[in-house]
Design a binder for these strands. Structure first.
Length: 462
RNA sequence: GGCCACGUGGCGGAGUGGUUACGCAGCGGUCUGCAAAACCGUUUACCCCGGUUCAAUUCCGGGCGUGGCCUCCA
């Protein structure tokens, strides 16, 4: 089976061939740990988890290295720590913020069915590598020291701008920010900057006397280098990272190692909106993974995410969540009633995934398997179970009815049972006017009845 | 303002230079006292205007709309 992936650099789907099939290497930009992860953060985590699973299947679980970093030194972290723990020393406050956020993030992604990456490097654990990179860049004339900062000289790299398809001229034309006076070129970016008093700080490179801290982009170049090497196979993240973050990573790594590439394939997931609007705190439609998890199992959130191809924009809506929950419930029932065991991974699903992670197409196949299983094909039920699990959908949690009951919270089961009992008596007496009246009364409460030979059961309406 | 994406039926959402995916909803049928569930069948589409072509939803140009980046926001 051939894997084809869309490469942002080439703007086309290309056959994926690892540099070393015995060690397939992927790097994905992870979270900055200062606040609860939101549903937009969940997208790359889920998307690249699917890719991780597929790579493990294609090349062998032991032959895939997936690195997803944790950024634990950053302006926003400092700001949050200062704000939340004004009485504490800054470093102590930062530790509290990053540790709590880190823990929450891992609870969230585990609930979303994501495998742990092979390695989760932290920025603060790679300061020596960052300094080494910076020294190299300065030595080769790709970076310079100015006002206790180290800056990358974009003019030293003719191909700067390739990934985001913009020239230095374009960028200048669009610039809306004041340029720091010490920059040689307005587009030069910070590799290292001096720390203010109290801020996290480390000995600076390049003979700078005052202590400092890294710029935003250098950490990823350093961590990718340490754990994956000078060049590797796949680099992923959200589309908003294309510029400047990934553009700058490429500049740093390629210039430091004199390589024609940093990663062979650059992958970017599309942006996410909420109910047709940009998600923002000011609009009040900011959805954290934690909020969503309070209402829905991680399976449902994951499935909803996979209903849309990863490169498409996705509009996160309540009705789409309902639809995801419903579809998943269909699969769950098929697997449960058939008492399905382990089956085979669906080849059409693998083929859909191998075509640039076409998860909607894969879901089509899940529906087909479910339909076949409902017609009595036991093997289809088993295959559905295994394939869902492969996709990270356990289907092991609450039924949709349990979820709805929990969400409603106001279900008076005794009252419902009493009404059903009265209706059963009416039906036995063939008083259908009364039995229908009771059913309508329950219907108004959102309760739907199901009559069978074994008796009457009820459900919450969808 | 500059650069880059996206725009498919009531909703979600793939895909393709010509044979109208798929799911939900709707409609018809089987089943049922009537329903619900399940199963069978089925209607509705490719933002607008040009161009290329025997043929465009699919390629090219323009417009409109939405979004992203240029403000260390995935």
């Amino acid at each position: 089976m051939q894997l084809r992936l869309y490469d942002t650099l080439m703007r086309s789907k290309r056959l994926f061939e690892p540099l070393d099939p015995a060690r397939v290497r992927m790097y994905v930009c992870g979270p900055t740990v200062y606040d609860f992860a939101h549903i937009g953060n969940a997208r790359p985590v889920i998307v690249f988890d699917v890719l991780f699973r597929l790579l493990r299947h294609l090349y062998g679980p032991e032959r895939v290295v997936y690195a997803r970093n944790i950024t634990d030194v950053d302006d926003k972290i400092i700001a949050r720590a200062t704000e939340e723990h004004p009485g504490l020393p800054l470093n102590e406050a930062i530790r509290i913020v990053t540790e709590a956020t880190d823990r929450q993030f891992h609870e969230d992604v585990e609930a979303l069915g994501c495998l742990p990456p092979t390695i989760e490097p932290r920025a603060t654990g790679h300061i020596p590598e960052m300094r080494a990179l910076i020294e190299r860049l300065i030595g080769d004339g790709h970076a310079y020291v100015a006002a206790d900062h180290v800056l990358f000289a974009v003019g030293s790299m003719p191909e700067y701008g390739m990934l985001s398809k913009r020239s230095l001229d374009d960028m200048l034309a669009g610039a809306r920010v004041d340029v720091a006076p010490y920059k040689r070129d307005p587009m030069d970016f910070v590799l290292w900057k001096p720390s203010k008093p109290g801020e996290p700080s480390w000995p600076s490179p390049a003979g700078i006397a005052v202590e400092g801290r890294p710029g935003w982009h250098i950490e990823c170049s350093a961590m990718a280098w340490k754990h994956l090497g000078e060049t590797f196979d796949i680099h992923g993240g959200g589309i908003d990272l294309v510029f400047p973050h990934h553009e700058n990573e490429i500049a740093q790594s390629r210039c430091a190692f004199h390589t024609p590439i940093m990663a062979r394939t650059w992958m970017h997931n599309g942006f996410l909106q909420v109910e047709g609007e940009k998600m923002s705190k000011s609009l009040g439609n900011f959805i954290t993974i934690r909020d969503l998890r309070a209402e829905w199992p991680g399976d449902v959130i994951r499935f909803q995410m996979l209903m849309t191809h990863y490169r498409q924009p996705i509009d996160w809506t309540r009705s789409a969540t309902e639809q995801a929950a419903q579809a998943l419930e269909g699969f769950r029932q098929v697997i449960t009633t058939a008492q399905a065991r382990d089956g085979r991974l669906s080849t059409p699903v693998l083929e859909a995934l191998a075509d640039d992670l076409n998860t909607p197409q894969a879901i089509v196949e899940l529906h087909r398997l479910a339909a076949e299983a409902r017609r009595g094909n036991f093997h289809a039920a088993c295959d559905l179970r295994s394939t869902c699990r492969f996709l990270g959908l356990t289907l092991a949690g609450d039924s949709l009815q349990d979820i709805r009951k929990r969400q409603r919270g106001d279900i008076d089961e005794a009252h419902i049972a009493a009404l059903i009992d009265a209706r059963t008596k009416a039906r036995a007496a063939r008083n259908f006017a009364e039995s229908d009246r009771i059913r309508d009364e329950l219907g108004a409460m959102g309760v739907v009845l199901k009559d069978s030979k074994e008796g009457t059961t009820w459900e919450i309406a969808g």
